[in-house]
Design a protein around this nucleic acid. Structure first.
Lengths: 232, 232
DNA sequence: GTCTATAGGCGGATAGAC
DNA sequence: GTCTATCCGCCTATAGAC
């Protein structure tokens, strides 16, 4: 019962867990989240289906693990894209994050569908997914925070009717940003995923051809809508 | 072999077809499109599963029929919302169409997921779905066309890099509108569905509370982004 | 057009041996 | 932890009687 034995056991467990999730991601691509099945994963790994239950107590637990991994993978990609232009102007960094999200989505379409597509019927994501899910939003918020600090942030117009909600959102999400900016940021965040989802899910078929250029321009407009200055 | 007999037969067929689609929509809500099964529909209707094949040759054909119905239901709703403010200013009509789309989506979440959510794995929508899918887009285009005719339409900025694509899109979608407007319209169209999808699929959970107000303001900004004047 | 019967698969989950 | 065996359910699709 040495700590080495413990470590070896724990390591083996992690390796099998990783293999299960990897096979599950392949199944996600082939069959979709709704049809993710422990049996099929077991078959692919050459394990007995009953052995899976030692790693994931149920199909939904496996799904939850995949969702958190996907959010984290996206968060990593977005943070890396941001890091690559860390010294640049906020508007440039905003665009870099958005393009990082798009690039990740194009490279991981099924994981994107898992986290931003239609909900899986009968499955409800637990609160444990929230921290990973919030990472991209935090990144965009931080960019705006820096712009504000450098006095590079304009206040978008805010109609009177939306002010109470904007103030509530600001208090929750970014108390140091003007409510005008926070409301616009949340809208831009949703709109960003509209652009990506349409490209990924085929709605741009025979409508938009030069999608990279189209996207770059669109996120530039979104940057402007939240109060960032145009890139020179 | 009177025409009456023919009519009765045809009528019965339509009625059964409608009942099948109705039951299938209930199954869509309960299990999702990926698990739509002819057998479960047959069970609900008290029919033998083999009888279904007289109406839909395969599961995918039933799915296609449901998709076309959903696009048409949405198209009807959007056109009705537009018709209710037919005499108003274009910006008002734009907003009405967008709110009509949102209202329909909130009332038919599973059908919305079917047409704008993640693709159903293994299913590829045939070209026959295109006309129904295009209806909302045509409506938005027509609103902008009228605004253009009344000289109420500004030209949004268009960076040089996007001009070729914008001109291509304009030639395809609306040759009588400026490329600047068409490019902005396509982006706004995708962004609209981003806003609706986030609300519907739970991403606004604990982020946006007063969603109707938030949405109304956001589509107002979208209207402005395509060149429509602000509502007075 | 509808039925029964059938072929040949799939799934989640558990019990109990090793 | 992994296995076999098992329970009980599900599915698409076809054949052939009525």
């Amino acid at each position: 019962m040495s700590s080495t034995a413990h470590g070896a056991r724990a390591r083996a467990r992690l390796e099998v867990t990783a293999a299960i999730k990897e096979a599950a991601r392949r199944q996600l691509a082939a069959e979709g989240a709704a049809k993710l099945s422990l049996r099929a994963v077991a078959r692919e790994l050459g394990m007995a289906s009953s052995a899976m239950y030692r790693y994931f107590p149920s199909r939904d637990d496996l799904l939850t693990a995949l969702i958190i991994d996907a959010y984290d993978s996206l968060g990593d990609a977005a943070e890396a894209a941001h890091g690559a232009v860390a010294g640049a102007a906020p508007a440039r960094r905003w665009t870099a994050v958005c393009e990082g999200v798009r690039d990740w989505a194009l490279g991981h379409p099924h994981e994107y569908a898992l986290i931003y597509g239609s909900p899986v019927p009968g499955y409800s994501a637990p609160e444990t997914t929230v921290p990973a899910a919030a990472r991209v939003g935090f990144l965009l918020r931080d960019v705006l925070r820096d712009a504000q600090r450098d006095s590079e942030l304009a206040k978008p117009p805010l109609p009177a009717g939306l002010r109470p909600e904007a103030e509530r959102m600001a208090a929750d999400l970014a108390p140091d940003l003007p409510p005008e900016v926070v409301a616009a940021m949340v809208a831009a965040w949703a709109e960003l995923y509209g652009l990506i989802g349409f490209e990924l899910f085929g709605q741009f078929h025979r409508v938009v051809e030069d999608r990279a250029t189209f996207f770059r321009h669109a996120v530039g407009r979104l940057a402007h809508s939240v109060g960032l200055p145009a890139l020179t």
